[in-house]
């Protein structure tokens, strides 16, 4: 498939500037990564509402929480590693527990961070965030979905985590796309199996579905951009109608989106499920595409897992 590529991150920065114009309560914080996270755009437009706290993520989450208590709509941004790893307790204690209106928008999640290596490759963020009560967890699949999700969460009070990546990703949507929190988006119909994917794996799932069609397997593709609250209805429907599920994510296979899907299947409509994701290991340096190959985030691996899942159908 030939894709038009675009980086997701400016979707965040542009949406933030739009929100700044619309709501005087919107404030943004950053921890010395305003260029990479694209929050520098907000700084340029609304410097009095922008706080760069320096390399101090824990303090950033605390200040974000304090601002939220005064009625602000707060966006706090840094790399996924430092947002959810370094400042986990601050998010838990000071944002999730008091249910404050802080939107944590993380960039540079996953193995596609590339050359920086394991210290910067965050594969656990969806797991860490989805186990927190009160937290909404979103991982958009492209530039447009990022933009629409950021605009949407600003109107939805409460703590929220949005995950984006570093690299350019295929454009799946356009300006007319309507993003709904908690609702998966079907990108392809199919009857034999459902591919439930998230983030940059959505495009891979679409590519896999096209290949599968050539060998007579009709694969449905759902973009599960909200990991929490999970779209239970869609999962049960997919299980009933297609009888097999393959989940695809750029995340540790433990407790990520695939596990969230498995939890629903186990309780409501047990059907075979295979998970494509990063194994339970730390990453390493390399080019993004090379790393995706090396860690099994490939069309081939999705196809192999689909075959396995379909063969397990009763």
């Amino acid at each position: 498939m030939k894709w038009e590529l675009k980086n997701m991150r400016p979707g965040f920065g542009e949406a933030l500037v739009e929100l700044g114009e619309r709501y005087h309560q919107v404030v943004a914080l950053n921890a010395d990564l305003s260029g990479s996270t694209t929050t520098a755009m907000f700084d340029a437009a609304y410097p009095e509402r922008f706080f760069n706290v320096g390399v101090a993520e824990q303090n950033m989450m605390g200040i974000a929480a304090g601002l939220a208590t005064t009625g602000k709509i707060v966006f706090a941004s840094t790399f996924a590693m430092f947002a959810t790893g370094r400042a986990y307790d601050q998010i838990r204690q000071s944002i999730a527990y008091p249910k404050l209106n802080v939107k944590i928008v993380a960039t540079h999640a996953g193995i596609t961070v590339g050359g920086d290596g394991a210290s910067h490759q965050m594969h656990e963020d969806l797991a860490l965030m989805r186990v927190l009560p009160h937290m909404t967890v979103i991982a958009p699949a492209d530039y447009w979905e990022t933009k629409k999700a950021v605009l949407k969460v600003a109107e939805t009070p409460g703590p929220c985590y949005i995950r984006t990546g570093r690299t350019n990703t295929p454009l799946l949507y356009d300006e007319d796309y309507k993003f709904h929190i908690g609702r998966a988006n079907r990108l392809r119909d199919g009857d034999d199996v459902t591919l439930i994917a998230v983030g940059l794996m959505v495009a891979k799932a679409l590519e896999a579905a096209e290949e599968l069609e050539k060998i007579g397997i009709s694969a449905r593709v759902e973009n599960m951009s909200t990991i929490k609250p999970i779209d239970k209805k869609m999962i049960i429907k997919a299980a009933k109608e297609t009888g097999a599920i393959v989940t695809c994510e750029e995340h540790n296979m433990i407790v990520g989106m695939g596990s969230a899907v498995a939890e629903v299947l186990a309780g409501y409509e047990p059907v075979p499920q295979r998970r494509v994701g990063i194994p339970d290991v730390f990453g390493e340096s390399g080019e993004s595409e090379e790393l995706m190959e090396a860690y099994g985030l490939t069309v081939e691996n999705i196809i192999a897992n689909v075959k396995k899942a379909v063969s397990m159908k009763r």
Partner: peptide
């Protein structure tokens, strides 16, 4: 260790408003 950060956020909120 978290309270002082929160207090700063509140103080900045007052200033903005």
């Amino acid at each position: 260790g978290q309270g002082l950060s929160i207090a700063i956020g509140m103080a900045l909120g007052a200033r903005l408003d």
